[in-house]
């Protein structure tokens, strides 16, 4: 028998890596959304939360490391599988009529790579402070007297720029599309397919995709609409 490494390189096990890393990213996006929505609780709430994350110290780096590994595994495996799939049909049809596939399922690579490009901008903006240094370097005094990074002021100031907000909304829309196919697809890949709960998985996937869109988009919309100042 061949080594375990050979099996892990099979199409199916590559897909399992895609599914597990994708679900990890969905988990991260849910947690990230919960944190971001604290912007509606005012500066104290979100800044305290931001400081709380930093206070995790080593654990925060473990979580960050985990999500970076998941992203990298997801991206590299998708490119590897895409190359394989492209070489499985070199001559294309003159006429093809899709029946079961969806716009989202057929554009996973495009939506995924577009999200990646946005992600790099998003990180350089809000994590590395390379886009607007002024708003990034603000500080805030918590009620307990600690001086912390002013996440609230940074988010509000930057989303007041309609270009930043619109690009963000477009990226979130792509995340929504990507998730509609990704969630149920991950379960199928992991071998979880049963007539009793397939409907539930499909609805949950759609629900999470819509939740991402409404949740994430509500922030720039509230800021542009002056509901959050």
């Amino acid at each position: 028998m061949a080594s375990i490494r050979t099996y892990l390189q099979s199409t199916i096990m590559s897909k399992v890596i895609m599914a597990l890393s994708g679900l990890a990213v969905i988990g991260f996006l849910l947690a990230h959304l919960a944190g971001n929505l604290l912007v509606f609780g005012g500066p104290e709430a979100i800044n305290k939360y931001g400081q709380g994350l930093r206070d995790l110290g080593g654990l925060l780096w473990v979580l960050r490391g985990g999500i970076v590994v998941a992203f990298i595994a997801h991206i590299f495996t998708s490119i590897h599988l895409k190359q394989r799939n492209a070489s499985a049909r070199k001559v294309s049809y003159a006429n093809t009529q899709p029946v079961n596939s969806t716009f989202a399922s057929r554009t996973m690579l495009i939506s995924g790579l577009s999200i990646l490009i946005y992600l790099l901008f998003h990180l350089s903006h809000f994590t590395w402070g390379m886009v607007s240094t002024k708003s990034f370097n603000g500080s805030y005094i918590l009620q307990d007297g600690r001086i912390v990074h002013d996440v609230y002021a940074m988010v509000v100031a930057d989303f007041q720029n309609p270009i930043i907000s619109i690009v963000y909304i477009v990226a979130v829309t792509l995340v929504m599309f990507h998730t509609t196919h990704a969630f149920s697809s991950a379960f199928q890949t992991l071998g979880i397919n049963h007539p009793s709960y397939n409907g539930l998985i499909k609805k949950a996937g759609l629900g999470i995709a819509i939740l991402f869109w409404i949740g994430y988009v509500s922030i720039p919309v509230a800021i542009l609409g002056q509901f959050v100042k």
């Binding site: 199409t11 199916i12 599988l81 070489s87 049909r89 969806t102 399922s105 996973m108 199928q188």
Partner: peptide, 20 residues
């Protein structure tokens, strides 16, 4: 193991759950 490995070696693509 053997059938999936032969399937991969024959040059078929992987499933992306389009369900076509």
């Amino acid at each position: 193991i053997n059938m999936v490995s032969t399937m991969d070696n024959e040059g078929f693509g992987g499933c992306t759950n389009h369900l076509e």
